[in-house]
């Protein structure tokens, strides 16, 4: 298993390079222009000059090479400098001063380093999207397990109904609906997420909770619906297997049978879905973030896409790709741990 993990890790480098190249060429092929949002009152010659200043006209391969150098050489240097200068962990080391003012990955919209903006966005994305994922998983697993155990009970039927309706109604509808009910009519929660809010005491924590609750619920509904369906289906497959009968026959308690034997064998599809979902947390939730003005990474990606801010889109999708590859690797390793019969070597 260890050799497998190491082999996969080494292989992931060329994979990621290839993925980044495909994404880059896709973005180059896609129609679009960073000047699209510039008003029509600005004459075309001026727009052309602005494009040149951004480096748009250069050949695609040159642009790709520059981007590679910036991401894999310049940005790590900035990061190491930050580690040895400001971070708590390694701040005692002498300042390395590796970064000598080379050009970093610069966003075309804001003319500032992409990484700085990404770091700025991570807190609210983790708070809202990450928390909703945890909430979703925590609700979905018990629902899935119990609905399978008591198949066709009232609980199962109600759970199926609620989750499927929840899944088939898109967040662009549930979001505004919650805002109308809870912000406009009841006035309980704010409809606009305040990203500058600092939590430092009980009052501010309560405010943070009140502004997070609606987006978290909208997102958790989607996660719950999806996960609980897979959990239920997978449990049902296993509950009628011979080994369950054997376990019961040798006198194991129901709790041990269900929670240890069946659950462990049912986790494979569920682990896959969970692992696929984690990179999506970092990708943010485009629609929900927009509806509640959370302005996390999802909103960053969509505004960059609409503004054709290629360095930003490229860097974000690459981070995303990196996480996908890593979490799929983790899922594959988990399969082996859950079911020792699965062997990759």
């Amino acid at each position: 298993m260890l050799t497998y993990a190491i082999r996969r890790l080494v292989l992931s480098v060329p994979t990621l390079l290839f993925i980044s190249f495909v994404i880059f060429m896709l973005l180059q092929l896609a129609p679009g222009d960073p000047m699209a949002q510039v008003p029509l009152t600005v004459p075309p010659e001026v727009k052309q000059k602005m494009r040149e200043a951004l480096g748009v006209g250069e050949p695609a391969l040159v642009q790709y090479w520059k981007w590679l150098v910036q991401v894999f050489w310049t940005e790590p240097k900035v990061f190491i400098d930050w580690l040895t200068r400001d971070s708590f962990l390694l701040g005692w080391l002498p300042d390395t001063n590796l970064y000598q003012g080379e050009l970093r990955v610069i966003s075309w919209q804001t003319r500032s380093p992409v990484m700085d903006i990404v770091l700025q966005r991570i807190p609210q994305t983790l708070w809202v999207v990450g928390l909703s994922y945890v909430v979703g998983v925590l609700i979905a697993l018990p629902i899935g397990i119990y609905s399978a155990y008591r198949q066709y009970s009232t609980f199962d039927q109600a759970g199926t109904f609620v989750t499927m309706v929840g899944f088939s109604i898109p967040p662009f509808f549930t979001g505004p609906l919650l805002i109308v009910i809870f912000s406009v009519y009841l006035g309980w929660f704010p409809s606009i997420y305040d990203t500058t809010h600092v939590v430092n005491d009980w009052e501010s924590f309560k405010y943070q909770l009140s502004q997070m609750i609606m987006p978290v619920m909208v997102l958790a509904l989607q996660t719950t619906a999806q996960l609980s369906r897979y959990m239920r289906a997978s449990m049902l497959d296993n509950l009628n297997q011979d080994y369950v009968r054997t376990a019961r026959a040798k006198g194991l308690s129901e709790a041990v049978v269900v929670m240890v034997h069946v659950l462990r064998n049912s986790m494979i599809p569920v682990i896959t879905v969970i692992a696929l979902g984690v990179p999506a947390i970092f990708g943010g939730a485009i629609i929900t973030e927009n509806v509640f003005k959370v302005n996390g990474i999802g909103q960053l990606l969509i505004t960059a896409l609409f503004a054709n801010d290629l360095p930003m889109v490229m860097t974000l999708t690459f981070i995303f790709a990196f996480l996908i590859v890593m979490f799929n690797l983790i899922a594959d390793i988990l399969y082996g741990l859950l079911d020792p019969r699965i062997r990759y070597d």
């Binding site: 805002i179 406009v184 704010p190 409809s191 509806v291 302005n295």
Partner: peptide
Amino acid sequence: ATLKGGGDAEAAARAVLQTGEY
């Protein structure tokens, strides 16, 4: 002063006209 961005025109109108947050 705070100048907040993001969302859509509908939500912005709602925040001023209906909830009075902005």
